[in-house]
Design a protein around this nucleic acid. Sequence first.
RNA 1: GUCCCCGUCGUCUAGUGGUUAGGACACCGCCCUUUCACGGCGGCAACACGGGUUCGAUCCCCGUCGGGGAUGCCA
Length: 512
Amino acid sequence: MDDRGARRAPGRISLMCPAPRVRFAPSPTGHLHVGGARTALFNWLYARSQKGVFVLRIEDTDQERSTAASYAAILEGMRWLGLDWNEGPDVGGDHGPYLQSQRLDIYRQHLEQLAAAGLAYKCFCSAEDLQAREDEVKAAGGVWEGYDGHCRNLTADQIATAEAAGKPYAWRLRTPDEGMTFWYDIILDKLEFQNEVLVDRVIFKADGFPTYQFACVIDDHLMEISHVLRGDDHVSNTPFQLLIYQGLGWKPPKFGHMPMILGPDRKRLSKRHGATSVQEFQKQGILPAAMLNYLSLLGWSPGGNAKEVMTAREIIGKFSLKKVGSSPAAFDYDKLNHINGEHIKALDPGQKVQLALPLLAERGWALDPGWLVHGADSTEAYLGRVLGTLGNRFSSLLTLPDQIGFFFSEDFYVDQEAWTEHVGTEEAGTFLKALAAALEEGLALDQAHPAPAFEEVVRRCAEQQGVKAGQLIHPARVALTGQSRSAGIFDVMELVGLRRTIERLRKAAGSA
RNA sequence: GUCCCCGUCGUCUAGUGGUUAGGACACCGCCCUUUCACGGCGGCAACACGGGUUCGAUCCCCGUCGGGGAUGCCA
């Protein structure tokens, strides 16, 4: 094989250190899970920070479980996160094909090479045979420690007989009985395994497909992957794979095993904990930039007192494999939401409008041209003004509709508790009526008014009533917005418009 | 059972053979204020345990405990 390929990779930065080639190799058997997303992200960050190459390879060697829908979902999830790849099934590249199901001949050739060297052998045990022997061992009070080597030393006659009988067979790797296999892991440092504990696992299935263990090694080598960064659930697979590299006479890549992501209770992260796939987070209003940012903080840290809220570019600038930790992290939905809020707040006004527009469309909300509103003549412009009054209160896509619904519809969300407390009293009714009358007298109904005009009337009215402005403002806020918390009340009045403001105050007063 | 990994506030983490063990989320209090949020200020809270090594261990070694992973013709 030509190992100079790595040095031909684009964007090399040093003669001494060829640009790395890394890969994310998901199996298309479900959505892009946060664990997978984190693995993909760290590979991507490493590639981008080192001016290397990021390869996407699809490990679809499980015919039963691989689906086209999953393939599409994974690519979609990665695109949503903003993880782009230099080589992959959809974009091609010099090391394709990138779909393992299209590389069967390649695997077959290498299997033959191993078989010729006596390192792979045929195993005629059926799933039932294996299960029966396992049950037997367990029934005798023993522990099944993996394949028992049943077909390891079949004679030529035995093999011929089995083949003549048409018995299906798989291929297993013959692992050494003694010695040890070790490597220096980028994240976990030196790891070593006694070869004795390694079992002869299947490398080629009876259905003619290679197993993950085998295909992964062949592809990583042929695709000239320099660093294999994956979850630490693969640690125990590594010595076995190292033996395959060795059997084929190949130099293995560097390995880096990242700790897994756990649920808030430190158990395996599952649906029980809430969202686990990136598309679910998308539905929950999480911005891709925030998801990427949060995920980057799981197992990695910019260090010291550095800011944690970062853009992808900033993360790339600071990323280093050396700073990836080795202890598993619990997923914290609160912190994700906080980071999401920070990313929303950092958006410029135009971006916020674009972000919120689909939410209005979903509900059929738009600016009613019949309503007189000061300084906004289109839905977009109006939404811009609305979001402007919200300021930093806009920090979640999930709560936004309730926060702004009253600007677009008379059928808005009402917090019953707030209504009872602030509007449902006799005193509040009196104030609301007085305020409505004051507004009607003080301002021209056929005109749109800016916030200060409303403020002047409200404060004067409070004076006339002999109470502090707050006593009018609180009931008015609930009457206008349905809630006890909102943007500045005078801004609300301006954008709700005089006519509707008066209507809502009267309606609320009437319900007292 | 066996093998492997991990163990700093509740959570994410920084960090060092000698530090008042730092930051962030969450939580609590105060200020600001028409509410909430933001912001500002302050608070609560950690080196799992037991042995060593050492003048001195959170840091190095061993053990224990706890958590996670693997133990598939899944990946």
